[in-house]
Design a protein around this nucleic acid. Structure first.
Lengths: 254, 254
DNA sequence: TAAGATTTGTTCGTATGTATC
DNA sequence: GGATACATACGAACAAATCTT
């Protein structure tokens, strides 16, 4: 009882470039190709699929847009299997949430759940070089902010602390999600002008938490790391909510 | 001190279709366009950008591949702003993890952290219709599996339970991440043939947990829901790890 | 049902740009 | 600098899909 000859089905009939793109993708997967491996040139693809140059090129662009291939001109040029970068993956995913409107609480519901576990799982497993890198990020904001711009820069830097930490995890899934949320928060900060009024409280608490956290990570105190991060998340969320309310109030008042 | 005239920079010089795609994207964002809104036709774009048809079409394919636009032929046809679907977003994201190899523990590190919170946050907030939908999913596997195939189908159905639950959340971020992990597990199940040996233990425990969970959700017992889900996650992970070890052993033995 | 209008889809031939040797 | 090997881009023509009358 295999698939019976299905009628025209409901499929909206994909265009040739899309079908070619799929075929090439399957071809790469079947042959277990790795990033950097070379794909057939345009001429050969035209012959293999019996299609014109334009059609093939559209197919290549589809694959390129997804980060699956890279293309270079010149001798020795051509198309090559590409590894999707984290940045590109985040950008593509951000498109999905563009029309969804995400709230601060939505983001923190995830951060509250994930970041403490991340911190705990890294305790005692970071090299001295990695710990130094974290300390360096913290050192980027040794003074409380005096202007809205400085405040914003500090917030972005503080988010960088979390992203740096996330990337130390050998769990690519966890690292990506945490890092992605950092990116959304950064966008919100820059784009929606949160943090307009300098907020000394967040600065001081953030600094203290991150310093404590590094110590706990260095000495392998997993439970402490989790507790510190959890507490940090709760504080940060509360402060951001207040900021957001202020911004909104001001926005309405204008 | 605005951006100084930067030298050629390092950018690898993007091709025309890519630049056109970016321009169109910016244009859509600036004008705050919504899904379904119409974009200029090929002819007009050719004129506006002063480029040939092929170039414009490649740009459109780039946008289409990201789910940002949809295109139809015929009168009244053309390109329209599209809303990226959850499925497409998952597929694009899956490409990123293709070369990353994710382990069962990686996935469960996230599930353990997220699903209990998800369950707790939904307790007492589901309609009777939604609860019925969950019960319907559970009813899909009223009997223990007798063959490897049945087992696999049951596992897929059980993952569907979690995805259904996730989609009831009004936190789009949380819903997406949980649902995405369900998808990865499904792929692993089907593709790597985990669960080959029917596993009565997982069946019985899974069924019991899900039934208890629905009751807790219905009566608004958030803490119970969290506890049940956490416990379920731990059991499921342990069983999957064992299964994976068995599959691997068998694979090596062959 | 059929014809016509509109818009994207596809092809082909040719010319240009770019990196390597 | 010139030859070579590739992708990049153009333009004109024709095909196919789909809506309207």
């Amino acid at each position: 009882m295999t698939a019976p000859n299905r009628p025209p089905a409901k499929e909206p009939r994909r265009s040739r470039p899309v079908r070619v793109a799929d075929a090439i993708k399957d071809w790469v997967v079947e042959r277990n190709m790795a990033p950097g491996d070379r794909l057939p040139g345009e001429a050969e693809l035209m012959a293999r699929f019996g299609m014109a140059k334009g059609t093939i090129r559209e197919a290549m662009r589809i694959l390129e847009a997804q980060g699956l291939i890279e293309t270079r001109t010149g001798p020795g040029g051509g198309s090559f299997v590409g590894e999707v970068t984290a940045d590109r993956a985040k950008a593509l995913l951000a498109n999905y949430f563009y029309f969804k409107d995400i709230s601060i609480s939505d983001i923190y519901q995830l951060r509250r759940a994930l970041e403490p576990e991340l911190a705990a799982s890294l305790a005692g497993r970071l090299t001295e070089a990695q710990l130094a890198e974290l300390e360096q990020v913290v050192a980027k904001y040794p003074e409380p902010a005096r202007s809205a711009e400085e405040e914003r820069d500090q917030h972005v830097a503080s988010l960088e602390f979390h992203r740096t930490l996330a990337n130390f995890s050998d769990n690519a899934l966890l690292a990506f999600v945490v890092s992605f949320m950092g990116r959304i928060l950064t966008d919100l900060t820059v784009y929606r002008r949160l943090y307009d009024p300098p907020n000394r409280e967040l600065y001081e608490k953030g600094l203290a938490y991150q310093t404590e956290l590094i110590a706990a990570l260095r000495h392998g105190r997993a439970d402490d790391a989790r507790r510190i991060m959890r507490s940090h998340m709760e504080t940060a969320e509360a402060l951001m909510q207040r900021q957001e309310a202020q911004v909104l109030r001001r926005f309405i008042a204008e």
